[in-house]
Design a protein around this nucleic acid. Sequence first.
DNA 1: TTAGGGTTAG
Length: 659
Amino acid sequence: MRASKSVLAALRKTMSYNPMALCRFLGSSTALSSSSSPDCTVWNKKISHLIRTGQIEEAKKVFNAIEHKNTVTWNAMITGHVKRREMAKARKLFDEMPERDVVSWNLMISGYLSCRGVRFVEEGRLLFDQMPVRDTISWNTMITGYLRDGRVSDALRLFESMIERDVVTWNAMISGFLQNGVIAKAIEIFESMPERDSTSLCAVVSGLIHNGRIDKAAKLLVEFGAKDGYSENLVNAYNALIAGYSQRGQVDEARRVFDQIPYFCDQGKRRGMGFEKNVVSWNKMIKCYVKAGDLISARGLFDQMIDRDIVSWNTIISGYVQVPNMEGAIDLFNRMLYRDAITWNSMIMGFAEVGNLELAYEFFQRMPQRNLISWNSIISGYEKNSEYDWAINLYLEMQADGMKPDQHTLSSILSGCAGSVNLLLGAQIHQQVTKLVIGDVPINNSLITMYSRCGAILEARTMFDEMKTKDVISWNAMIAGYASHGYATEALQLFEFMKQQHVKPTQVTFTSVLSACANAGFTEAGKYYFNSMASQFRISPRMEHFSSLVDMIGRSGQLQEALHLIKSMPFQPDKTVWGALLGASRVHNNVTYGRIAAEALMTLDPESSAPYALLYNIYADLGQLNEAAEVKMLMRRNNVGKHVAASWVGSPHSETRTF
DNA sequence: TTAGGGTTAG
């Protein structure tokens, strides 16, 4: 096939838009020699296009078919492999190619350096040393590679031995130093560089924010941002600053920056050339208000926006979902022209949060394309609302659908297994976790909880012991496992070991520790631990800690001391605390304290029949039948007690105790 | 082929 020169020229002109057209015209089955194609530029572009669109096999076919390749052809093919980190394949081509130019060398170096790891960095350096002629890009690539790998001094050595540095070199040094936390040096470089561009400023601002130096970032942005010569992408730096303040909860500061952007726009000569706020600025500011819980201001900005994008809508919807105000969210949802998975997922999460699983499921069903987060949201929704079997069924459905679970899915489903005491599935998930190599700390913690809730306390302990890295939650989970199964000694031993390992306990730790003491009747130990909360760890005791202490002191017979403790509490005791005193009074059949506790409970929780029932039993056991009858009458008069003495859920230990 | 940025949902 032979194409006329003019046709080829016309086609070449449109090449960059539609390279496939040329291919179709020429037919791709024939050998692509220079006789059928005047030069290989066209084919090189075709290869580049195929690589850009991820069709490397196709690219390889074209590459192999070309008879007379030039250096660009080889480089294009090498690019394809380098992008996919296939360095062995890239290297083979590089070694085979008849003539290399500086781009070939640079490509290989950048490929090796992107792979990270000492071996690859050294390989890159070897090529850098071997190459006959280096340009600035070679140097910049090598410096960036070192900085990415944390080798700051190597980078600095190269930088200092460079003769002709360009702005990219300086910028690479700035961002690299900031990435490695060498802040002072980065600022020094920024301030001493011969010419700055907007990238320099963006790099230094975002890097400083990343390193917690937001005020310095703001100062530099104000100082250098107002000067001439910076391009429109400076707004990115302002946006980064808004996001930085937003993350720290400094709403007013963020708003000040947000309002400042058009101010500098007036200062700059090219008004309307991009110095103004863009949609990202608005979205970040709205997000800032949402994060601070100021939905009114967030909505105000949202309503003022002229060009909203999907992120604007999703941000404001997430604000309503977080409150949660699902009516508002639905209203916005209905007004949206285009929705994406994030929109739908936010709605699902919101409905799950307010316990409306029907609507959550309906939205889950209705959404056009579910992703992993959709599944995770609906599964965790059911799990959090104690619908464990639904959660487990959805998990099975998810897998049948070919969706691979991640650590969020597994953590939800493990909680589901713990909730429904499904040891069989829990152990299966454990195997899956091992296979998927998602052995991260939160997942392992869920496994501990799952095993211990299912009563497999030995498996829980094995899990705990095998964890290479633990956090305080791992310790809490294991201690809680022991405590809730009556292994008080083991719980306290582990707690002592935890302190030896210098892991700082939390309020949750003490909840389990005190509950273990209460269940086992270790009153003195319990008092000691309770006092150590504030004195050793600066943790203020919460309601559940007081109620445990009241429980154990009361049950040991020191009812007066228990009442004294209640009176000395820094906040109003709730029904769990009074319930503990009432329970203890029942154990000792003590009318005096039983009455006090029961009366407090009747005021706090007028619906509950439990205080009447307990008080009745105390009187009855003491043979004071008249008083017992009075209690019954009182209960009838107050219109409580359809199920007499049936369910008492006020005490933290209600499951393990019978009244 | 080198530098910055890339918002929203767990």
